[in-house]
Design a protein around this nucleic acid. Structure first.
Lengths: 251, 251
DNA sequence: CGGACTGTTGATTCGAATCAAAACCGGTGG
DNA sequence: CCACCGGTTTTGATTCGAATCAACAGTCCG
């Protein structure tokens, strides 16, 4: 893996894990195949049996499941430095889709080299395991969000969580972050209808809690710039507590 | 760990992992401290920093989160042989409660001995990692359930999923299984109100899809015996596909 | 200019929550 | 043995949040 490719992964990993120099070098030596993926393209599909994991180097992606009657539920959003399908290392068949939200650069890492790395460097194995456990913690909070919160609280919670994660990797500051989601995308995350998401966002804007602007972009897809104006109030409204993100490295 | 204590764990682990004789012996040698926990008692609480993991030897447990305004959302149900808080091995602070649904026998295993085992036997480390990944897969399906399915489909899906898991460990057959849940418990799992769960169950019974009977038990708490009469129709109704449970061992 | 996607608005329906009360059931204690 | 009690299930009436349906406006793009 070239140093530049490893940067995103290492930034993310070291947010919540202690890695020593040898660990870092081992990761930088990982063989990797990069590929550009267009927005909205399926990176790995439900039912696939993958032989490699996808490192999200640039761009955003999401994982979602589709019910038999065609309804989509997004179960997670992914930001640079994450390996959204790391579970495929031990779960050979995908139980959901991994889809590019924006144009992405994906670094494919073979299961073989990851497994070898895990055996060679138990500390990295623990770190990777830990990232999948944090992923699960986020899934649990996501369940609470769709199961028990009102539409407004739910929406606020999602935006706060994304902001928190993006800020940790330097992609957000002062409540501002760019994320090219449509209201339909948000609806799929939240278990709501797109129409209702629209009304909820209007409400949040009217309350002066946030602003959303669509910046033009060079590409087809517009970029939504979210600005959380009153984080305190939003957190209060959403019942947001970042503890579940487990962002401090541990013993 | 005495052979009898290890049995439940090994039964569960070997459903979805290949373990060799040495692996089995290593697990059987794990030091373990057992403890009885009364129904409804908190085994590990949100915010706790545990130093050991809880093996559910006998009984049922669930994990849930409580929102600031006191609403409970259950995020998973646990059956004998599972280690519901295995994530605490790498996530030092609990982000949810682990609660005994029934009187339970819990086997506490220290993080130290588990970490030593993981290093000594990478195959077991992979197997344990895999169980946490299956746990996450179940969380994802749970999100879809509360996010996108109707109350009836949701309820049917939960019961089918529990039946499927219980049958795998020999605790259910022919659609029948005993589980001492109240309708409020189900409501907390489903993101519904208890009243509505009641009406949904009535509907499912009226359709001849299932029966629920409360068997008297020696203890305070009654035991609900569920009987899924028409699994095909229930699966159709719920959009249930057991693939996400990943019950076959893999490469 | 036309078309596709996205965002917005209004009218209406519907599923589920809420509120309230009653019936039920096993367990306890007088 | 029976009266009472707490937790649970059930029923009915009502409200409410969000979905649905339908149309229209805005924007980017070919």
């Amino acid at each position: 893996m070239s140093a530049s490719l490893a940067t995103a992964l290492l930034t993310k990993l070291m947010l919540s894990n202690h890695l020593d120099g040898a660990d870092v070098q081992a990761i930088q030596r990982l063989p990797i195949r990069t590929q550009d993926v267009k927005a909205r393209h399926v990176i790995v599909a439900d039912g696939d049996r993958s032989t490699e994991c996808s490192l999200l180097v640039e761009g955003f992606a999401f994982r979602s499941k589709t019910t038999p009657d065609g309804e989509r539920q997004t179960v997670s959003m992914h930001i640079p430095g994450e390996i959204p399908d790391l579970q495929s290392l031990h779960l050979n068949v995908m139980d959901h889709d991994l889809i590019a939200l924006t144009p992405c650069v994906i670094g494919f890492i073979s299961h073989g080299s990851l497994k070898a790395l895990n055996i060679e460097r138990p500390n990295i194995a623990a770190a990777l395991w830990r990232t999948t456990l944090i992923d699960a913690a986020i899934l649990r909070e996501w369940i609470v969000n769709v199961g028990r919160r009102s539409a407004t609280a739910r929406t606020a919670h999602l935006l706060l969580a994304l902001h928190h994660r993006l800020r940790a990797i330097g992609m957000a500051q002062d409540g501002e972050f760019g994320l090219p989601v449509t209201q339909t995308d948000l609806a799929d995350c939240l278990g709501l209808s797109a129409v209702h998401v629209n009304r909820v966002l209007q409400l949040l804007r009217a309350e002066g809690l946030l602003t959303v602007s669509r910046l033009p972009s060079g590409r087809r897809r517009a970029r939504s710039e979210f600005h959380l104006l009153q984080q305190e109030k939003l957190e209060e409204l959403a019942g947001f507590d970042p503890a579940y993100l487990h962002q401090q490295p541990e013993s």
